[in-house]
Design a protein around this nucleic acid. Sequence first.
DNA 1: AGTAGCATACTTGTATGGTAGTGTGGTAGC
DNA 2: GCTACCACACTACCATACAAGTATGCTACT
Lengths: 223, 223
Amino acid sequence: MNRTNFKGSTREYVYEKIRESILSLELTPGTVISEKEISDDLEVSRTPVREAFLKLTEDELLTVLPQRGSFVTLIDLDHVEEARFLREQAEVGMMKLACHSFPESKRLDMLANIEKQKLAKEKEDEQALFLLDRDFHLFLAEGTNKKRVWQVIQRMDVHSQRLRKLSMNLKLNWNLLIEQHEAMVQAIEQKDERAGMEIMHEHLTLLQYDQSPLKAEFPDYFQ
Amino acid sequence: MNRTNFKGSTREYVYEKIRESILSLELTPGTVISEKEISDDLEVSRTPVREAFLKLTEDELLTVLPQRGSFVTLIDLDHVEEARFLREQAEVGMMKLACHSFPESKRLDMLANIEKQKLAKEKEDEQALFLLDRDFHLFLAEGTNKKRVWQVIQRMDVHSQRLRKLSMNLKLNWNLLIEQHEAMVQAIEQKDERAGMEIMHEHLTLLQYDQSPLKAEFPDYFQ
DNA sequence: AGTAGCATACTTGTATGGTAGTGTGGTAGC
DNA sequence: GCTACCACACTACCATACAAGTATGCTACT
């Protein structure tokens, strides 16, 4: 991705660029960066960089100390858990709504998505599985008219991505996850509110694993 | 509030100033404003105004059309409902946690807060009741270590404030609300998870009233 | 009258200059 | 050697200049 073929303003370009660098751990937690440094690197002026910094500050991905400097925010496990908690509460609620009424077209989208998940699982394409999983949950949000909620959750949830990156050897049990996805669609079809909520609860509780080994291995990256 | 005695940067000052104007309907939905106009009014340069505009855009309180202009975002009832939904899900979840374990000091804070609510109710001080109610729910968030969740909810919930302002004759049943607050603290003390969640659910469902008369009365303010 | 086209006055986006606060390293004085 | 002080480099913050896109209204031509 470079500036010329990026659709959107320079500000958005810079924001996405830095954001990706932070989430991929190219910029490790604690790394000091300055407006000038980035503007020189990306060959843009300080203004769009500064505006990107402000948005990154909102995300708590960057910490700015006025007149002193800026650095990539350290990972805060409390923050990660709060994001997971909010996501679970929101999606269980969406599931409840979905089991009451849900557009047929979205349900079909979800079914097709699950088939793609199975294919990706065969190919062991983790990246594709990650994106398909995202889309699956997005369909649920769209079908229950809660897209803004989904966006808020997504934005808060970025911090878990850095953890996932750190624990590269973490093998997700995709067979189970895909089974749960299937059970969700079934619950929606059968309007089985109790089953749907229960499965979603279990599904999102799986994300709650013991992160202390990571903190022990990379102490400098954590608060 | 003017610039000299405001603690914080010019950017934050401008942001708060415009935000208050929008939420109080001083700036009505749809009103066209420009960076230059605001910077002249507040006697600051365009830079902090522009940065405030960006943050207001995040809040969906302002809509910016590049090279064309900016205007106060119209009220979107879907947005309001999504905020209420997310809040209900989050706070019911917090209640569940609180009924499992909750710091004694916070519980005492909540009890004292309720007594203040009763006093404010006697004096019919709506403004005080509003703030006390806010604090009450904040205590719950703090006691369950979910302060970030609370902030996210608060930020998303601003749109309901414009509705509240429009429906000035809306009389809230504070007696019921305060009773529910008491029942919440009781549930926490008795660790009665089921009762706590049920009360919180009812409590936050009360915010779901029919808003179509307002839309009929102020059609220009709505999407 | 109606319309194409251009000048103009806006808008926001980007670049750059200057300001004030902060940390650091060196130096003079003890 | 140690400390107080100061010059300097660096930061983010704010102000301003310039660029580029858009709406509007006038004018000239059909």
